[in-house]
Amino acid sequence: MSTLNHVSASTPVSEIVGHMNRDNYVIVDDLVPTSLMDAIEEEVAPYVADTPIGYNAILGRRTRRTGALIARSPSCRTLIQDPTILGVVEQFLSHASAFQLMLTQIISIEPGESAQGLHRDQVAWDFFPFPSDYHVQCNMLWALSDYTAEMGATRVVPGSHLPDALTAKEYTDADCLQAEMSRGSVLIYSGKIVHSGGENRSDKVRRAININYSVGWVRQEENQYLSVPLEIAKTLDDDLLKLMGYQEGAFSMGYIRDFEDPLRAVRGDAVAYGYDPDRVRAEASPEFTAFMANSE
């Protein structure tokens, strides 16, 4: 029987990215300790309990989706900034000028939930037909609970990212493999791979922490500026704020007021006005460098 690709937590980032470039998914086993999962679970428990059940088939009629994890779970901030994950995202989305956090949510699939419809996550952008060689996102599903087939482990269709792949609707259950993994492990996948939540045939709740990243120039699925109140944002480090979107997502994309650094919205005059054109040029793509040269 075929199984999905697994690698160990000690696998170099470049090798993980190699799996992503080839297969558009990979499972990294035991990347974080279960103690971190314990802390997250404790912090979010009251919010999960208050989260309503989904109201349609794609959200799940026996599934709860709890967001705003930066504001609600300090331990989740550690997960979001995991160095291995950020290294993978940076390399996998290196064709863009910047990357950002797209969403944070805990997905709780309760007993009796049916399998979610197969889909590609990149349809979130109004079903825009991104080129087959352009990746707009890099996504994570962390096992917060046990993650077994019986509990509804995520279903993945290997090969469904390829240019000649079928539409999501044309795949069937027979095409799917389930991402069974231990608590603290993570399924990394692209926006092009067909997948879905599985049917929960057990008497336990299957919980995953869904943390997605996208290129910096698209709109985020979860509005981080409203999900994280300003008084909490002021307590966060600059790297996390930039990841949330307090940065320019590309040249002339996302500045505030008078062409100012978005961090000034949180830090005020502690952040210098404007931006450093020499740094921008040094980090820019050849296309941007050529554009600036022709504009001067």
Rank of each mutant, 00 (worst) to 15 (best):
D237W: 03
A153Q: 05
I40S: 07
R281T: 10
T167C: 06
G198T: 11
I70C: 00
G152S: 06
W142T: 03
L144G: 09
F92D: 14
V271H: 07
K234F: 09
S14I: 11
V156M: 08
V156H: 08
T66V: 00
E260S: 05
T78N: 13
D50A: 15
V215R: 10
R22H: 02
I211S: 00
G198R: 13
Y273N: 00
D126L: 03
A284Y: 01
Q81D: 02
I188G: 04
A39R: 15
E170I: 02
R279Y: 01
Q91H: 13
M20I: 08
I58W: 13
E150I: 03
C176H: 11
Y171L: 13
S75N: 10
T51I: 06
E296I: 01
E43M: 06
D126W: 10
T172M: 10
A115M: 08
V194Y: 01
V271G: 05
K192H: 13
D30E: 09
P131F: 01
G249K: 08
S182K: 15
E180Y: 07
V228W: 00
Y47V: 00
R183Q: 10
A68F: 04
E231W: 01
L59Q: 12
Q178C: 00
F128S: 12
T289Y: 09
L36V: 14
H6V: 00
Y189L: 04
Y225R: 07
S214E: 13
R281S: 07
D30F: 08
L241Y: 05
M181F: 13
D121K: 04
D276E: 02
S132N: 14
E287F: 03
F130Q: 04
